[in-house]
Design a protein around this nucleic acid. Structure first.
Lengths: 242, 242
DNA sequence: TCAAGTTGTCTGTGATATTAGACAACTTCA
DNA sequence: TGAAGTTGTCTAATATCACAGACAACTTGA
């Protein structure tokens, strides 16, 4: 008889990875927490340190943990579930996850409408626009960086208002626009370039989600055009199909 | 960068085994059906024949399939879920699974009560007993073989009645006992000996489940003592704890 | 009886998994 | 600044996985 112990058919490192993932999921190591060192994990799981490293590499690949040389391996916060509905605001989404939403103005400038922006905003090509660049964070983790364009003629004080209130919703409210919604959202992905990497605190080569959105008022007239780049490892878009 | 393709950590043969098991579970191959040959399975799964063999060996180890040299590999019928309650009858259990329950009388004899049987049946040591040996099948698959002892003084015509009706329930009914139940069930396991192997159509060395049971009447008085050996690969006891 | 088709077993080869040890590179903290 | 602790990288040896080919042993059906 062959009598071979019927191996589970799962490699050892995978078992270790699953075990660690289970511990994280059960709250054994909260987000941001440092995992035990590789040597300790190896002894605990009765396995070679290299096998632990393979397991951690797999978890890191999926964004569950992050290794910091010389310091330790840390549990990453779970990805923010980012529902793509017509009326969800960044602050609501992040707040719903029990995290503190923050915004940071990176800069503002005046630009003339390119053909594409003009088409989106239903303005003539070359129309004056205000461009506002901002960074958004959940607690201290950068989530996305992006630009918003709006008509300089209709909202001449947009930059000043945004600096004052730190919220595009309030900028529009100052102009009597109480309701606006997302009309269209297009999503693609790319690899973080040096700029993304710096502002989103990402490694170069990590994926970013690119969102092109258009917000409109209650009557469907275009208000804002957006180009936003999300750190893919910190966010997960949820599309609700009906 | 290491850039190692993040392997799933599951061996190829295990993936193939899971795939075949899924097909069986989804009814692609009904019980008793012959699977495609190893060569065909290998080409279908784009894998070496030896890898398929490893997968089939794992499934055979779990009793899902059975390989017959020179002929093919066949899907084993799923194990009968055999609930251990106080009032379940073999025929009901098998019938509930959509299979045809059958019984076969192997023999009957008179014995004197051993100390153990006497204690169970609440009779004096050496009291005359009738022993009935029977084989039970689901469709044509032997499920269990066992002996039943009952008092020869109380049920002198038990053998004749059992031959006539083929059912212990009806033997008791002829004596006015309309209700009886299982008072205790003890379970252990052993390896099939030559006798088991022959009568249960098992390979020698395969496991058998050994059940020692005592049936009592409505007032708790012992009626039957049973020793039954089940083909473990065809049955699965279900104990309902409350 | 024979041929075709099947599973069982053997040998061999290359890739991967796992272990082991050593050292480099880096962070943290006293 | 230095020591301790951490992750990153390298070499090496062994075991298992997966592939490949050949043949034996057996069943089935003409």
């Amino acid at each position: 008889m062959s009598t071979l112990q019927p191996d589970s058919g799962v490699t050892l490192w995978r078992k270790v990875a699953d075990s660690i993932e289970r511990e994280i999921a059960q709250g054994g190591y909260p987000a941001g927490e440092k995992l035990p060192g590789e040597v300790e994990l190896a002894t605990v799981h009765r396995v070679n340190r290299h096998t632990v490293r393979r397991a951690l590499a797999a978890l890191a690949e999926r964004g569950l943990v992050r290794a910091e040389r010389g310091s330790g391996t840390y549990v990453e916060p779970g990805r923010i579930a980012y529902p793509l509905r017509s009326r969800t605001r960044f602050s609501e989404i992040v707040g719903a996850g029990g995290r503190e939403p923050r915004g940071q103005l990176l800069g503002a400038s005046r630009e003339d409408a390119t053909r594409e922006l003009a088409r989106e905003l239903d303005l003539p090509v070359g129309a004056p626009l205000i461009r506002i660049d901002g960074l958004r964070l959940a607690d201290s983790a950068p989530i996305c960086v992006g630009s918003t364009w709006l008509s300089a003629e209709r909202f001449p004080d947009a930059e000043e208002l945004y600096r004052r209130f730190g919220s595009m919703t309030k900028v529009l409210a100052q102009h009597g626009i109480r309701d606006y919604r997302r009309a269209s959202t297009r999503i693609t992905a790319a690899i973080a370039d040096a700029g993304d990497a710096a502002r989103l605190d990402l490694g170069i080569g990590r994926p970013v989600l690119i969102v092109e959105g258009l917000d409109v008022d209650g009557k469907g007239r275009p208000l804002l055009a957006l180009r936003t780049r999300f750190a893919a490892e910190r966010v997960q878009f949820v599309v609700e199909t009906e």
